[in-house]
Design a protein around this nucleic acid. Structure first.
Length: 278
DNA sequence: ATAAACGCCTGACGGC
DNA sequence: TGCCGTCAGGCGTTTA
């Protein structure tokens, strides 16, 4: 589910408090428990437990769509994939009883101050890594689209060696890190580019437009706390400003042409056939 | 290098 | 009501 803006919103809440929970910065881990075996990327829960037990949360940050919990020695990486979410709550009710688990809870990180951080994930695609070498995973990722070094010139240069369709390329996390299906469709619409355009055929002018569109949709997404659709991920408002995503058959807000849905790179793709021509 | 097909999972929704 | 197919903010592996 979550793309960069949703993950950023979750990370800010973990760092500063928000989304109904308190900050987890500085808390000490009492224990970690998994309720779905494959949620833990390695297959050794007792080693995972030993690697985090007693350690403090030094920093909370985001890299691409990964949540990064920096501990004193090791690092916890969380990828929410399609349906993951995080909540922070007290482990106990006011009467002193344990707060019950919920149906789709897959991992619980308990702290010594009786707070807990719960990773909930209906579809079980989400993954957690506990490692002393997070760069083994994060190091393969492409540039952060909102970072200073992601420039129109860099994007254009990276496109030159690529004959792929632009939409799947933008969603390739090793090419550019953080874009998903929604924000890619929205960015291509704003930039007036067809999702099947071949990357190295785009002029610098068009790449500049695309670069600006990527940064503006991601920034708007973060400002509105992400997009909330279906039962997954609550609290965002970005869905109210969709231009094409999930608007099949509705009028393009720029030209009035009905939005079409096609499949590109095995993903449902929404675009305006008039604004976004090859 | 590129891309398709498939696997991993559960749930919502529409058609019959 | 139930059954069935399709679809879903992702990504890794295998196969062409």
């Amino acid at each position: 589910m979550p793309e960069l803006p949703e993950v950023e919103t979750i990370v800010r809440a973990l760092r500063d408090g928000g989304r109904g929970g308190k900050s987890i910065c500085g808390l000490t881990i009492r224990d970690i428990r998994f309720y779905w075996k494959r949620t833990l990327s390695s297959s050794n829960p007792s080693l995972a437990e030993a690697m985090v037990q007693g350690q403090g949360i030094v920093a909370v940050s985001r890299r691409a769509k990964y949540i990064v919990l920096q501990l004193e020695v090791s690092t916890i990486l969380i990828h929410l994939r399609m349906s993951g979410d995080i909540r922070v709550e007290s482990s106990f009710l006011e009467n002193g009883k344990m707060l019950p688990m919920q149906k789709y809870d897959r991992m619980v990180l308990s702290f010594t101050n009786q707070l807990r951080m719960v990773f909930t994930d209906t579809r079980k695609f989400g993954r957690v890594w506990i490692t002393e070498h997070p760069q083994d995973i994060l190091g393969k990722l492409g540039p952060e689209p909102l970072s200073e070094d992601f420039t129109p010139e860099l994007l254009f240069e990276k496109f030159q060696t690529r004959k792929r369709q632009v939409k799947p390329l933008l969603m390739d996390q090793q090419f550019l890190a953080g874009m998903g299906n929604i924000y890619t469709d929205e960015a291509l619409h704003i930039a007036r580019l067809h999702p099947r355009q071949i990357a190295n055929k785009l002029s610098f002018e068009k790449v500049k437009r695309l670069h600006h569109a990527i940064q503006s949709v991601l920034t708007a997404g973060i400002q509105t706390n992400g997009a909330s659709i279906d039962w997954v991920y609550k609290g965002g408002e970005f869905q109210n400003t969709f231009g094409v995503y999930q608007r099949t058959g509705e009028d393009c807000l720029k030209c009035g042409t009905p939005i079409e849905r096609i499949t590109v790179g095995q993903r449902g793709t929404h675009y305006c056939p008039l604004c976004q021509r090859i």
